[in-house]
Every structure is written in structure tokens, then in C-alpha cells.
Design a binder for these strands. Sequence first.
RNA 1: GCUCUCGUCGUCUAAAGGAUAUGACAUCGGCCUCCGAAGCCGAAAAUCCAGGUUCAAUUCCUGGCGAGAGCACCA
Length: 575
Amino acid sequence: MIQEIKKNIIDLLTAAGVMGDIELSSPPKPEMGDFAFACFGIAKEKGENPATAAKNLVEKISPPVDGEEDLIVKVQAFGPYVNFFVDSQELAKTVLKNILENKKFGTHTFGQGQTILVEYACPNPMKVFHLGHLRNLITGEAMARILENAGYDVKRVNYQGDVGMHIAKSLWGINQMNDVFASMKNKSVEEQVAFLGKAYALGATKFEEDAATQAEILEYNRKIYEHDWEIQDVYQTARVWSLEYFDTIYTKLGTRFDRLYFESEVFNEGKKMVLDGLEKGIFKKSDGAIIFPGSECGLHDRVFINSQGFPTYEAKDLGLAKLHFTEYKPDKVIHVVGKEQTEYFKVVFQALSVILPKTKDKELHLVGGYLQLKGDEKMSSRKGNVISGDELVMSVENNVRKIMAERDIQHKEFIVNKVSIAALKYTMLRVNASEDMAFDVQESVSISGDSGSYVLYIVTRIRSLLVKAGVLPNSIELNVSVKIPEEIGAEEKQLLLVLARFSEVTQQAVNEFNPSVITKYVFALAQAFNVFYQTCSVLDAATEQKQFRLYLAQAVARVMTDGLYLLGIETVEEM
RNA sequence: GCUCUCGUCGUCUAAAGGAUAUGACAUCGGCCUCCGAAGCCGAAAAUCCAGGUUCAAUUCCUGGCGAGAGCACCA
């Protein structure tokens, strides 16, 4: 609804003769006004200096009538800016009406009728689910929710590499430890997966060191692609262990997929597409391999079918894309994948747009920045010294459990779990998805500051306030006729202004494909509420004011809960 | 070597060319007989370097320096 207020101001400016697109910003301090228009542009047109232009413009803006219904009550020049002041009562009326009467506040309809595939997580069976996968998973789920909130028909998909060299290395490694493998059949998924991790590490290391092993592993690779019966038993067993283990992670983090894609179901089609493309001259032969000559259009060459005749990751992605478009006819496919694949995707998307023109401009790489544990050395899954995703989750949980040791609340373990996931997700979604980030376990569970627990805390405080006031959190009727007090304090007005921004923010998150704008907003809202709550007593206030403040608190709780939902974070009753 | 990212308080970070560069952690100093102090208020603290474009540059351009990634048969 901030858009409505802005439209009001833009109308005033247009009426005063300002042409073209009008952009409004916020003054640095609330005393200076609520919205600002910079006059540099119009000053240039008229050959005036910006400050004079601002003064002249203020003269021309029809002085707001002192009527009841005017949203804008004051217009003032501040140097080169024209600043607008919003009437607190009108603002309060609009904001509360919108939030409390409108269940859909913050949602949009511009995505209706369009299908978007969000592909994320994408761990490789028989390998570790590492921190990068965890960050992708959290980003992807948030992005999916943000898109759903805008009306898109979202399909969550997960593409996993169950064929190829890493599987060959794992199978070879397992074969070296057959006895252990046999003894793992009745163990927990965690132990089974830990074993698979070791097997892969062994295979990967030996592959580098020893030529004979290399040949054996290549032979395994052939058997995988050719569905050789000899390896099927071990292959299927290990594959299932991995997938079951991944499932436990998805469940824990509150995500579920509409469709799991596997390399094993797309590699044949991918290979076929490349061979067809070879005949049409789209691909070329080079040193026994088949490549896409990306260098001819400013990119780089990549191998799609290797000299042994096996499709590489590149070819498989072509097969996958074809399957995506056959099954869902998407308007967009968003791949949430680490930034090391940026150049790779440019080539694959280019090849794809030639082979399947309908995919053009629909494939999108949502770049995921790296995640590094603070103070940690660079990790390599090949060396086996990684901290896995679930180890990090457990580590966060242990920290939260320690912090909450003194708390006397029911269902503590349940709360510990919720708070931990909130802390983890919040920290991951706090920075721009494409930026590298340093993850500090201590900081993420930190009791204070820009953290998941800070924002959850607000919601629990509001719940407890509403209970004390005798209004249960969900009992306020939607068709309230809110009485607005004569006096609205500066803190209350600031809080209202932040509340009003929510729908703009949910739209921005879609436009930028960036969940972190929601995180930043939720934090700003929490801060604004805390400032208000510190200065304004609710329960001791006069009837009318008390009523208004309870509605305000209620509105904050609702927007906060909705915002956190978009991040995949659940709120708690108490903590 | 070529290409692509990225360099902001001690640390983690924010700013689709615009007002005094945003917050948080840590540090220092205040605020609980009062709605949950997991809170609030205050202090100190930063745009890698050199040019250029612009009325205006953390942002755009060029060149350094530094970090990371990609660059043929891995995924």
C-alpha cells in the first residue's frame, strides 16, 4: 500500500508540472519528511540550481487542503529535495485496514497463469550433502515461496547425479571395503552415509594417484551407463541409502519436492540431442569428443560427449531441459546453483536455445555464493574433511539447546528445533544469495542482534502481550472499525510506515530473485516494533490508545509471521 | 596465460548515480518496583590505490594491487 501513498505524491508532482518517470526516496531522518523527490533532473532542464528548483516546485504544488481525508499534510523543500509528510491518522487508518481486514496483504497476482520451476538442493547420491547444498536448499525453498506468494504456479524440482564418474569412484571405493559395506545394511542412515562418504573419498584419491585404479574406475563408469547387472545390487542399495538420507534433511528443513529428476533418466536423451545436433552442425567433433563451440559466440568450448562416447554433465542438462519442458511447459526455469557454474550455464543455455528455441530466455541461473564456516580452512569433499550440512544443523541445535537450558517451558525440544532452524535459515538468507558469506555458528544462534532469535522473540512477545490483554492472537475480527487516536507518536508512525512497505518488498524479492530483501525487511520491522514497544506502553494506555496499539501489535505479528513464512521460517508460541 | 566475480568500521554486512555511507557482532557507557532485558538508548569505528566521466561516484569507465572461481572429455 506504500504504492498508493507514492501514487498520491506522484499525482501532486505531475499536477505541478513534473514530467517523466518520478522516483521517490526516503529522507535520512524522519523529522525531514516521509518521502522525498530529488530535484536534480528538473533543475538541469530549467537551468536552475537544484535548491532553487526545489523551492519553486514546492510553490507550485497545490498546498494540501486542511481536509480530513488528505494523506499528504505538508510539503517542504530541503536543499535540493522536496519532502512530503504523510498524515499519521490517515496512514494508520489505511495500514491497519489493509493488514487486518485483508488476508492477502503482501501477496500479488502478477504471476498468475505462469509456471516456474525452481531447481535446488541437487546433492549427488553417494556424496556428502555439504554446506553449499544446504544454502542452496534454503535459498531455493524461500524463492519458491516468494514466487508462490506472487501467484506463480511453482514446481520444486531437484536434479541429482546418480550416474557418472563420482558414482564410479564410490562403487570402486565400496568394493575395496566389501565387508564393511555388508555390515552397514542394518545400520542407521547416518552411518550408512558416513560409510559412503569414505568410499567416495577413497575412490577419488586413488583415481588421482594410481593409473591401474583409474582404469578400473573408468570400467565402473561404463558398467553404470550400460546398466551392467554385476553392479546393480550394490549400486541400487547405496543409491537408496543416499536418497533416504537426503529425505531426512529435506524434512528437517521443511522442504519437499514435486519432482526428483535423476541423471539416469535424462542422459540417453541428452546424448541423442547432441548427436542430432552434430548432424545439423550445431556441435563439432574435436579430439574424439563432441563439443559445443561456444568460443564462436564469445563463450568457451565445452565437451558434451566425451571420447569414450559417454554424455557429460552438459549433455545431461540438455536432456533434463527437454524433460522439464515436456512435463511442465514452464515459463521460467530457475537453477539455484553455486557461482562456480556461471560460465558453464552460459554455454549450456546457449546450446539449448539453438537446439530447443522455446527455452530461449527462460532458463535462469540463480547464482549461489559460497558459504564458508568462519575461521575454517577451505574444504574439499575429495579429501573428506568437509563439514556436512546435517553436522552444521546439529551444531546449531546444540548451541540453541545450551542457551535454552535454563528456560522453563513445555515441549522444549520442539522449540529448540524450531529456533535452530530459524537461526540457521535466517543467517543464510540475511545476505544476498549470490554473495559469498562467512557462516559463524555462534553468531547465528546469538541471543541478540540481527538474528533469527531476535525476530522470533518479537513474535512471542506480541503473543504474550495479546494474551495478557485478553485478546487471543487470532480472535480479533477482521471487520474491525479501528478508532484512530488523536495523537500518534513518532515511533508509532515509523512502525506504520515500515508495515506499509511489506507488499513492495515481496514484489522486489521476486523482481530481483533475492530472498534477502525479505530478511532485511523482517529485521527492520522487528527493530521498529522494539523501539515502539520500548516507548509506548500498551496495557496501561487509555482505552482508545490501548485498542489502537493492540491492533498495531497484531498487525506487526501478522506481517512478521507472513514475512518469515516466505523465508521458510516458522514462528513459535514461546521461547 | 585468457575470462568472469568480488575488495566498505577489528569482524559479518547494507546501500537499482543523490541528503551526515546501513545495520549487526565485539568494545566502552547508560536503562529492569513497569506489557518477556533474547530488549532499549548512547559513544568510538570503514568505501584497496591512481586516474577519468558527472552538478553529484561505494556505485559507471580505464589502469594498478589483492582475493576467489572458470577455462575439454568431473559434476
